[in-house]
């Protein structure tokens, strides 16, 4: 009986400690989870201006996309990112693109070349440079492209979705589920988001 007691106590301790430590590790390693409050930032846009999410007084939320000039998966998703901004900016969910890469490692992702890329592709959204790579680790972005949907709430910017733009990053013609569109549509309709986190092929962030 005593043994059983010890066993139960041990198991409880393991379960509790494993659970809490996992949470701690997640925050350290993986950044935000759905439901967390995201911090705002102040990052330099391609026009030289500093941009914060607080600047967008009218916005209901944001589609934050970590993307870059060089990653072929990002390039292949540029049209989709433009389409998201076109559709959802007017509805209160503008796209905010952030380049998380270190140009010392990936010279094609320099601030100067961000300007070139944005001009070439006629970006309609801010394209911000995560200078010093402070912001992407807070979010926990692991790849380009990597999308976070944030909703303005009383407590701050609530993370509502993390993951891919859709279920077919490599081939737009094969898309069956448009995760980001579905999520923003649900937010706009005050409905629950069915799929709140997904995975997608991408380029590792260059640190």
């Amino acid at each position: 009986m005593k043994k059983l007691k010890i066993l139960i106590i041990t198991l409880t301790v393991i379960a509790v400690s494993a659970f809490t430590s996992e949470n701690d590790l997640m925050i350290m390693k993986d950044g935000y989870k759905v439901g967390d409050i995201a911090t705002d930032f102040s990052l330099k846009n391609i026009d030289g201006e500093m941009v914060s999410l607080a600047d967008f007084k009218e916005a209901k939320g944001f589609i934050v996309v970590f993307t870059c000039n060089t990653c072929p998966v990002s390039v292949r998703n540029e049209e989709r990112i433009l389409a998201l901004d076109k559709k959802y900016k007017a509805l209160g969910y503008p796209v905010i693109a952030i380049n998380p890469n270190n140009p010392a490692v990936q010279p094609g992702d320099s601030y100067a070349l961000m300007k070139v890329r944005a001009k070439e592709k006629k970006f309609t959204f801010p394209y911000l440079f995560d200078d010093g790579q402070k912001i992407f680790p807070q979010y926990g972005a692991t790849a380009t492209p990597h999308t976070y949907i944030l909703k303005k709430e009383k407590e701050g910017l609530r993370v509502k979705y993390i993951g891919g733009i859709d279920d077919s990053s490599r081939n737009a013609a094969n898309v069956k589920s448009k995760y980001v569109e579905d999520a923003v549509d649900a937010l706009l309709a005050n409905k629950e988001i069915k799929v709140t986190s997904t995975r997608a092929i991408g380029c590792s962030i260059k640190v």
Partner: peptide, 12 residues
């Protein structure tokens, strides 16, 4: 991606 490994988000 999840089936290959739960810790993998899909970055190469």
């Amino acid at each position: 991606i999840a089936e290959i490994d739960d810790a993998w988000q899909g970055a190469l």
